Simulated assay, not measured.
Amino acid sequence: MAASKISAVWLLLALVIAMANGQGLKVGFYVKTCPSVESIVKKTIDDVIAVSPSLGGPLLRMHFHDCFVRGCDGSVLLNSTQDSQAEKDSIPNLSLRGYQIIDRAKSAVEKECPDVVSCADIVALVARDVTVALKGPSWNVETGRRDGRVSISNEALTNLPSPFSNITTLIQGWQRKGLTPKDLVVLSGSHTIGTSHCPAFTNRLYNFTGKGDTDPSLDSNYIAELKKKCAPNDQTTLVEMDPGSFKTFDKNYYALVRKRRGLFQSDSALLNSSKTRIYVRHQAEHFKSSFFEDFGNSMVKMGRIEVLTGSAGEIRKVCGRVN
């Protein structure tokens, strides 16, 4: 009975957040004030990915890291000051790359439409455009966000789900943002592109429970492969999250998770709940996939988290600092 009451509370909280999130956003928000914004951002991203496709993963992840801390308000872009350390300098964000690409897109938009388009909206558009550039799905991006003025390092630590999380922690963390277990497993599929530094998973290879052991939920042959790439104290080596196709957005991630070859504990955790395991199994086993459509839908939902609209916040002139 107690468990059912807790579940009901979480469901109600998620519904309230979902109703509050996204108000003021719409597709085509800039149709009159900056009609060329989407084409400008797309050209910037297409030019970048043609030369540096490895930036696709970090740029997509930047939208996620922005939305989970203070909502989708561009706070992850703000630089630290003498008085405070910003989100981008928090440990979970040290692996993010591509801030200069956001700045490049923002500068191009500013030349065409000064003081109109928020940095938060540019991050959302970039996430869609890098996905498309890497042969993934497209979706209609809702715009109308405004930029926040606050960025606090510790808030990234407390709000961003960890790659070491178990399934209970993951589901609860996503529900607090108004997202469902399905959204969790769908958006985890973004791990089909990009790379990770060794420290995000080497505990699974060398010292999983503090006794010099390996993670039993990770395929033993995969462990052997990863040990060849990552020594116990390796801090710098990058490993592909989806070996062999980490520059192509596809559904191969789910086949890897099903084979116990998900790189992170949070990947393997998707098999530990019927709410997420059934989706992994379906995408891994069936040729006809709903993943691309589902991904677009979940990205739209994520892009509505705690947004600033109307007269709230500001439209930053430069994404790294408040006006």
Rank of each mutant, 00 (worst) to 15 (best):
S188T: 05
S162E: 08
V132I: 00
I305P: 01
V116M: 11
E142L: 09
K301W: 08
A3F: 13
G24Y: 04
I193V: 06
G244Q: 08
D121Y: 04
G98F: 11
S52Q: 10
A200H: 08
N272M: 09
D215E: 10
L157W: 08
G74F: 02
G262V: 09
D294G: 10
A133P: 00
T169R: 14
E314L: 13
G194E: 10
N323D: 03
S151R: 05
I6C: 03
D213T: 11
L256T: 06
K275S: 06
K177C: 08
L15D: 10
S118P: 00
G212T: 09
T158I: 15
H191C: 05
K275P: 00
V48W: 03
A2V: 15
Y30H: 04
K43A: 12
L218F: 04
S298R: 00
D115C: 10
H197Y: 12
V257M: 05
V117L: 01
V51A: 02
S39Y: 12
R258P: 00
W174A: 12
Y279G: 02
E155F: 11
M241P: 02
L238H: 07
K229G: 03
C113W: 03
S52E: 13
M1Y: 07
G303F: 13
R104V: 08
K135N: 07
H65E: 12
L179Y: 05
S107D: 08
S90I: 15
E110H: 03
Y253C: 03
N203H: 07
V31F: 10
S118H: 00
T202P: 04
T131M: 15
S266N: 13
V322Y: 07
A255G: 07
G148T: 04
S153W: 15
A86E: 06
L96E: 07
V31I: 06
L170A: 01
T81C: 05
L12F: 05
N93K: 12
S54K: 09
I45Y: 05
S188M: 12
K111A: 09
E87L: 13
A8E: 10
H197D: 03
W174L: 15
P243T: 15
V48N: 05
E293K: 15
I40C: 04
A20C: 08
K182C: 11
A120D: 02
D183H: 12
P216T: 03
I171D: 00
L205Y: 05
N21W: 04
F201I: 12
L308M: 13
S138N: 14
P163D: 02
E293C: 12
P161N: 02
T209I: 02
T192P: 08
P232S: 11
S153H: 14
L13V: 12
T143V: 14
P35E: 06
L218E: 02
V9E: 07
K43H: 14
V69W: 09
S274W: 11
P232V: 13
S4Y: 13
V48R: 13
A20G: 01
D213Y: 11
F249C: 02
D46A: 09
Y253R: 03
K211P: 01
L170W: 01
T192N: 15
P137H: 09
V132G: 02
S311I: 13
L184F: 09
L94F: 09
K88W: 14
A50E: 08
V130Y: 00
V307M: 05
V116L: 10
G244N: 06
Q23F: 01
G136K: 05
W139K: 01
R277M: 08
R176K: 14
H282V: 14
V109Y: 13
G194N: 08
S220D: 06
G194T: 07
C319Y: 11
T236D: 06
P216W: 01
D267M: 11
